[in-house]
Design a protein around this nucleic acid. Sequence first.
DNA 1: GTCGCACATGTTAGCGCTAACAAAGGTGGT
DNA 2: ACCACCTTTGTTAGCGCTAACATGTGCGAC
Lengths: 345, 345
Amino acid sequence: MSTDTTGAAPARPLVMSDVAARAGVSHQTVSRVVNGHPNVAPRTRERVQQAIAELGYRPNAAARALVTGSSRTIGLITIDVDQYGPAQTMIGLEQAARAAGYSLSVAILDRAGGLTIAEAVDRFVAQSVDAVVVHTAELQALEALEQVDPPVPLVAVQMGGEGHGSTVTVGQEAGAALAVDHLLELGHTTVHHLAGPSYSVEARRRIQGWRTALARAGAPAGELWLGDWWPSSGHAAGTDLAQRIRAGEPITAVFAGNDQMALGLMVALHEQGISVPGDVSVVGFDDVPEAPYFSPPLTTVRQDFAELGRRGVELVLARIGGEDGGSDLVEPRLLVRSSTGPARS
Amino acid sequence: MSTDTTGAAPARPLVMSDVAARAGVSHQTVSRVVNGHPNVAPRTRERVQQAIAELGYRPNAAARALVTGSSRTIGLITIDVDQYGPAQTMIGLEQAARAAGYSLSVAILDRAGGLTIAEAVDRFVAQSVDAVVVHTAELQALEALEQVDPPVPLVAVQMGGEGHGSTVTVGQEAGAALAVDHLLELGHTTVHHLAGPSYSVEARRRIQGWRTALARAGAPAGELWLGDWWPSSGHAAGTDLAQRIRAGEPITAVFAGNDQMALGLMVALHEQGISVPGDVSVVGFDDVPEAPYFSPPLTTVRQDFAELGRRGVELVLARIGGEDGGSDLVEPRLLVRSSTGPARS
DNA sequence: GTCGCACATGTTAGCGCTAACAAAGGTGGT
DNA sequence: ACCACCTTTGTTAGCGCTAACATGTGCGAC
């Protein structure tokens, strides 16, 4: 319907020589100004900058990428961005990347296998990205990652194990230990664990941290259930738990692998007439924004996801700059609210 | 035969003429095969495809973008991806885009003003994106959008008003009406509304829908409070509300602008000894995954965010293909759970 | 005054690809 | 047999930019 020639929008996109013509210099001088090259006379630089501003010129990224081999773009491979943690991490990543002058290209894996890690890396390489950041805790995906050897830096964020390339990770074991120690200090004999799914490396690390903390304190081993991160699996576990408690089993403390499962768990317990924290204390993991408004407000382990993203970019930049960039760790923190209390004597 | 096939990372990236040499054709023939050009002899095509497979060749996206002016990339400008809706929408968008052979480049706005819409669009244009999708309900951002006239299709997703270019939107008024009518049918005299912040176009549309539905039913106008989408603002509103109820005000039904505020509201009510739905019925908006596990399980209006993303891509593709692509609407749906009940007589 | 050298600017080539045109080979109609 | 015409393939140019080299200019050292 509308023809796109409304004064401001030029029919032919502006190129460097348009700016050059206007400033009365060669296109190469414009290039030097654009790239902050030192050997340009101040007056010339000013004229060029003015011409750029007047024309509203932006250099063509594709041409730049072609000649330099770098697109000033970082590729992010992620999963489950509809969950709080991955979404926060992505925000931290994007903002840090942008602050450093990089754009973010995103590929979202799905559990249905629509896109494999190798394909995603491949695509990014063809796009001339300067680095790839992988954010997933999927065991399978991480194993696949080992096979990939891209010609650009690859950094993993939040992965549990030590993998190919650089890694930023939250101290999952430390976080689990925080939860367990808190519960033990409140006088609970042992702590049971409702873990995330087995394909998740994070879930495994938390299980490991839980076991270790229990052992270190000399407490008897607790029981382990597996959920799928979602509230419904917490609810199922809670229903089962409640029946066993009413049957007389001495279960008084549960550490849930994330806040959403803790929510489902507490709701099920409540439905079955079990009091939290009166009868059972519950600790979550993540500290989602809703956690303070659960019933009762949830004691949980906070992970600083945005910081994770920022560190990831730092690592990327170090690697792009040729530095080695080893592993980096973000420490979690315990937030005590009202879902935990002293053990019933 | 020098068996230096794939295996190790090649020192020099593969280019089209490497493939051409291996297949014994010219680079242009390779280009034709890669782009599915019709006039290539079947045998030749096969040989070339085999060479591509053996070498693991991927065309350089920057060179392609430079010569064609298209990078097969869609730029997404979004905000609040840490909230459920925007994150889901992004997932729908990314998957539909990838299915159509496009990549997604992401810019995340922040309320602090780190990046303006105009800058983001500008950046994307310099990146030769084929289209820009804007996903925000920020009034300010949408106004700024009116000033922008990019040389590529721009489609807005979820915006309330009719703006420049194409639009996909959820029927906000219809959703609000769903909530109000449900409450009215249960016998409540009127419905009060805890709305989202005033800068949000969505919040405004829901307010409008709420008012209209009330008026249409001949119900007296309800009271309006403004929150900020987060649970804490719902909690504050709920605390205030509870006191007024205990003072005798006849408040029995509240429609919250989103589920998180509904959560905060219900918790505050509960803390103050007001029963939901016994004393007050509450309806949310969004249907986050936690909603069935709130206390009580929340009656809410579901928005299909992933579908929104998919439709957005459809619209984009239509626009890229030169079609007009008008507005498109996704209809919300009411999910009745346990936070609503008949009015107390 | 003349040389040397640093700085400022211009000129040229080429990144890897696609588009346009050119050339070669095959087919059928007369 | 010839030519018209289609299909298949190759050759060339150029997208917009940066890197490398070439040229021009000014100024201090001798």
